[in-house]
Amino acid sequence: MNIIEFKLGNITYHFTVSKQQEALLSLTDEVTIDLATWQGFSEALDASILKAIPEALTPPSTQEIKHAQTIAHELNLSLPENYTKQVIVCRQFIQQHLIAHQRLLSMFNNVKGKLLK
């Protein structure tokens, strides 16, 4: 049975070729294939790399960064160091101030609603 194994940085990829794939491989000539031409390969590689990063070191999403920035701006708070680099820092900030931010939005929407009547 053929096993495909390769290493990129600290990640080792491992794949076992099926019997059908092994039979097809026996019919091929030697060929070099550029993986960049495989549609979806780059996205799958990105996803596997991100999955291998420990959660504490994973970068936050653009949406999480914007949410933290909105909360900081509207509550007049300073953003923590590394909030754009470490998801755990960003999420802790959001969770710590989420209730206060929701209260502020609720009060604002209540006042806005009364003004528009």
Rank of each mutant, 00 (worst) to 15 (best):
M1I: 08
N2Y: 11
I3K: 15
I4T: 11
E5Q: 14
E5I: 09
F6T: 11
L8E: 07
L8Q: 10
N10E: 14
I11L: 07
Y13I: 06
Y13V: 06
Y13A: 03
H14S: 07
H14L: 09
F15D: 02
T16R: 04
Q20V: 06
E22A: 10
E22P: 00
S26P: 02
T28E: 07
T28P: 00
E30N: 13
E30C: 04
V31N: 13
L35Q: 05
L35N: 11
A36Q: 12
G40K: 03
F41Y: 06
F41Q: 02
A44C: 04
L45M: 12
L50I: 03
K51D: 11
K51R: 12
K51I: 02
I53Y: 04
P54Q: 11
P54T: 10
E55M: 05
E55H: 12
A56Q: 11
P59E: 15
P59Y: 09
P60N: 08
T62K: 14
I65E: 04
I65C: 09
K66S: 14
Q69S: 14
T70L: 15
T70N: 13
T70Q: 14
T70I: 11
H73D: 09
L77F: 07
L77V: 04
S78H: 15
L79G: 11
N82T: 05
N82S: 07
Y83S: 07
Y83M: 08
Y83V: 04
K85L: 07
Q86G: 03
Q86K: 15
Q86E: 12
V87F: 01
I88A: 12
I88C: 10
V89Y: 04
C90M: 03
C90Q: 00
R91D: 11
R91E: 15
R91N: 14
Q92W: 03
H97L: 10
H97Y: 15
L98H: 14
H101Q: 06
H101P: 01
Q102I: 10
Q102A: 06
L104W: 01
S106N: 04
M107E: 02
N109D: 05
K112M: 12
K112P: 01
G113T: 05
K114G: 00
L115T: 09
